[in-house]
Design a protein around this nucleic acid. Structure first.
Lengths: 233, 233, 233, 233
DNA sequence: GATGAATGAGGCTTCATTCAT
DNA sequence: CATGAATGAAGCCTCATTCAT
């Protein structure tokens, strides 16, 4: 099988190429971490490069400026989540679960897929730098926040329509979920950094508690105590 | 010898002195606004001085460095709130209201005294810069967050003990209130800046909705519908 | 005369202020020299600042960028020459001298007012950087070159009309003068820098020689030998 | 064993070799153009390589540094002209033409062989970068400028000696020709770049005009109008 | 040889801080 | 005290040069 000839071996030629392909995402990962940790302004491009294991100059081969790196960090991770959200969206909307189960599932799957991962940093980042990068905040809002809220709103409305939930301000009721999520994100990346390890908020317990209260709060008063409310696995 | 000497007229001296005393707080106000608007790093000391109507040099007469100015901004406003919180604290603890009324009152008075004022910026600020100023975050946590949470926790516990509230995770139930507040703060200073004026969150309606859900969520299932839940004035 | 009171003495308050007023032109002078010596790219802003006796940062108090400094250097000196040119223009146009005398006077006064001064650097500069700063080249052309050429063209045309000069290509004849000037400028700032001090071009002799040839070249063949041709000073 | 080995086919090898030999001059051509267009500092080696159709790294196989590339550009083109100049030199010196014809011929042949070609860029380049590359300027002066001027000087002197030309400053009279050439070069590469296409200097007409004036200026007053002065074409 | 990814010294620019007036 | 001109350390970014493939 003398297939190999004067063409450089794929492995040899490839090592550099593979590095090259990997570089952008290595840099984006490093950048996400540092931007989340220190904020945009306090993060030095040299530190991002160092964390990605390359030199300052290399970063500029892939991103024309620090601000563009920042934008790429957001957009890249946005794209990554987008697919997930759509999947989730359809899975949930089409199901035949009760509205309560759907909300419970929404929060729990958010925790599994996002809340417990590094991706929460993205949310914190976008919020922290919203003033300095309004386009990104707008983009994030349009592509992540709005769709999610619409979905939740529909679920809640359906719950009301079916009589599962009390008649209430469906439009604003979503903020129960939204604020629950935001608090957890900020806890993880900002608030929770103060204080001793003891007394740290336990995410699962937090989510269980919030779900418990929210669902009790939404359910119609006549409703018997829903069997599975306290569960979170 | 009419006004001929080289000492400024008493009136002028007086005006100066009065202004002089006011300088620090004028600077602190200006700094609070700008730090909230743009973040610590993106705020130029010259801009703070300009907004306070003095020159760059003057700022450094009162604050030895930009970081110290930042610390002063936080501590000053912290102190300002401290008195209030203590008052509130006692007023609430000593009353004979129902636990639900106390929670309702807590949120509503937070809105009146803090949420609807410039002071929310402080919270946003401390959270945004928590990584870069951990002492401040710790201080804020110890002096503002912890006491409030303790108070709320006690109220909730009392509600449970009295049978007003369902038996639930009293320690974590406070986060219903905490997250409600945090969301409103971030909405005001970060999230809400994106998108058109329409679709903006209406604070009173938001608070009413959250209170409605939280209180419903906390109340014992047997409990008749509490009379004043939807109200917020 | 107790005119002095609590206002700071003009001398004291003024020293800084006077410096401040002087800074821009000190910097412009330093910049002109260095840009002429080394070109735009090879000149470091720090070197300009140092030659002006200030630090790097100070330069940026007066000029927003290196390119703007460059533009200011050109425009400033352009303005300076503008007045001169207009004066010259009128003095010459209105006179009753022979066309030959006018040309002779034009070249000689150019030498006195510009050629023998640091201002020649401006011409060299504009030409050297014409590609990188086309706006400036255009501006220089419109404000300095065009007017001068128009004036010279008119003088030559008048000489032809009056029969002083041979009938010739009046439009292109001006380049005799233009090229004479350009060569002297480039000699001074570029060509002349090579070679030993001996063998350096002597400006007055050069101008006399060129004038001699040009005027002989323009005068009508019938014309008797003009009396003052060889003179220069 | 037909072409199976890992050595490229002889044809391929030959093509490569031929290309390889051409590389340096392709790079020198590209470099000349770009250095003339943008100046030394503003020219990026990558742009030179790209215009020559090779990669950045390849350029450094042939030239150890950017400055060396620049030197090679000058020296290479210098060498190219050197032969020409010597030919010209002898052809002219030995002839039996009138001095006026020789000057006319000198300028016209300069235009044909140099002025109308890309080689003028070399002159512009050397002058523009004379300060930063004094060795090159010196070299150019010694090898191109000096010989030419000496030749022209001798022609003029002969014209004077023979009574064709007026008695005049033979040493400085050459600058009539020199400045004429320089102006055309700078016009082509710097001055002429400003302004609309209309109003551009027409080289032939320019040369004719200058020759007309110069020769009239040099000829003895008694001399009848030389028959062929206006011709160029 | 040829490539182009990687490097890092160096330049421009910002801005907190100082200090003469 | 107040001012604001001056400073210079520090950060972003460019680009000539190197070197593994």
């Amino acid at each position: 099988m003398p297939a190999s000839s004067d063409t450089p071996s794929p492995t040899a030629a490839g090592k550099r190429a593979r590095r090259k392909d990997a570089r952008p995402s290595e840099l984006l990962d490093a950048a996400l971490e540092l931007f989340v940790e220190k904020g945009f302004a306090a993060t030095k491009v040299e530190a991002v490069a160092a964390r990605a294991g390359v030199s300052k100059g290399t970063l500029f081969l892939y991103f024309p400026s620090k601000a563009d790196l920042f934008r790429a960090v957001v957009q890249e991770n946005l794209a990554a989540r987008f697919a997930d959200w759509n999947t989730e969206y359809e899975a949930m909307d089409g199901g035949s679960d009760s509205a309560a189960d759907m909300l419970r599932h929404a929060l729990q799957s958010w925790w599994t897929r996002v809340g417990s991962t590094k991706l929460t940093g993205l949310t914190k980042l976008v919020i922290s730098e919203a003033q300095n990068f309004p386009e990104l905040a707008a983009c994030y809002h349009a592509e992540v926040v709005q769709p999610s809220q619409q979905l939740l709103r529909r679920v809640i409305q359906r719950g009301i329509d079916r009589g599962e939930f009390r008649p209430l301000d469906a439009e604003y009721a979503v903020y129960s979920v939204t604020s629950t999520i935001l608090y957890l994100v900020m806890q993880k990346h900002a608030i929770g950094l103060v204080g001793p390890a003891s007394g740290q908020l336990m995410p699962e317990r937090y989510i269980a508690s919030q779900l418990d209260i929210i669902l009790h709060g939404l359910l119609g008063p006549a409703q018997g105590p829903p069997s599975r409310i306290p569960a979170l696995s």
